[in-house]
Design a protein around this nucleic acid. Sequence first.
DNA 1: TCGGTCACATACACAGTGTATGTGGATAGA
DNA 2: TCTATCCACATACACTGTGTATGTGACCGA
Lengths: 202, 202
Amino acid sequence: MSGVKSRRELYSEATKAALLEEATALFAEHGYAGTSLEQVAAASQVTRGAVYHHFAGKQALFEAVLEAQEKLAMEEIASAAAGATDPWESALLGLDAFLDKCCDPAYGRLVWQEGPTALGWHRWRECEQEYAYGVVERFVRGLIEAGYWRAAESVDTTVRFAFWMLGGAGMALTETPEADRPRVRDEWSQLIRRTLSGLRSQ
Amino acid sequence: MSGVKSRRELYSEATKAALLEEATALFAEHGYAGTSLEQVAAASQVTRGAVYHHFAGKQALFEAVLEAQEKLAMEEIASAAAGATDPWESALLGLDAFLDKCCDPAYGRLVWQEGPTALGWHRWRECEQEYAYGVVERFVRGLIEAGYWRAAESVDTTVRFAFWMLGGAGMALTETPEADRPRVRDEWSQLIRRTLSGLRSQ
DNA sequence: TCGGTCACATACACAGTGTATGTGGATAGA
DNA sequence: TCTATCCACATACACTGTGTATGTGACCGA
């Protein structure tokens, strides 16, 4: 925002960035419950005081980590989906980008596994609303408006359906050992494509 | 097992049953993290000592609650599905029974919302393997063997897909206010049926 | 009736979060 | 350049909740 930054501001931002980075790594590796703020602070070479200075608490820290992951992921997906003008083609491109992203262990674990357990379903959904869920909603609305899908059910139900279908893929990939991931990724891609086609109007 | 029971055994069983019942209610209402063993004990008119006597810990208590819910639910679904001999019809009957069950707030919240957050994804999946996941697997295998579905993808992927599709329905219903539940239930029923048909071979 | 056992209570140790307060170095004004 | 202020962070402490070790009284078989 403000162009000129004092030394203090720079240090402060560096500390916050370090906290976010270390927290991301620790949460991704040991899970939310398995990571204490003490560990995050130590890894960042500060004390818990710094954590509480920059974040309202453990949950807030995790939310910040989550949002950073989602922001990046959704940008990647949106950019991939922009490779086609037709909503149907665009959705398929977005799907592939999403599946690719889920092969990144940090993303998969943080968003699909730790997310709900850390924040509780409700809060997690609220966070996702802005990212994954929101993106899915835009795709679905695009498909409906373009006439590829008939909105036999309410849009909300359709979006949720798509969201959980993708979530299933994400969680499956997260749990799959690295070696099998390409194969499993492909299977989900096929299965979801077949599903989308199956629901296609006429 | 042993026909004759001493007074002590009877008391003990009653206490354990009370703990399970109160824990079910409390976990369902305030969530796993929001419920302390102190509250469970107090509601059961005992102390935490009793809880630790009957269960290895908080997580073990929750698992017991979960298993009781799942056992009952899966019996109901199996019994409903037995109303048809054809695998396809049987699966549809099972689906309806499942959706009905998810309209029970306790089942939905405990199994689909609190389950993963309480036990962590991994352990939760292990528990579900025996119940919901296992049931879905049997249905899917039935459909494949009867030739309704071609097993283009590995069975595992197909089962997971179905599992999360149903999970999405369960979570959606759990979050839906009581008044809208019949409508939403119906929408999911339609959507899932269309999906199953869409994936049907030929 | 007496010793053992079982169901549960009591007491304590410990980890982790959150909060209130302290401190030193950077910054702005004189 | 001296000083007052402020900010980033450290330190210290309170509290909640889990888990564990130990105590105790009712029951039960011999």
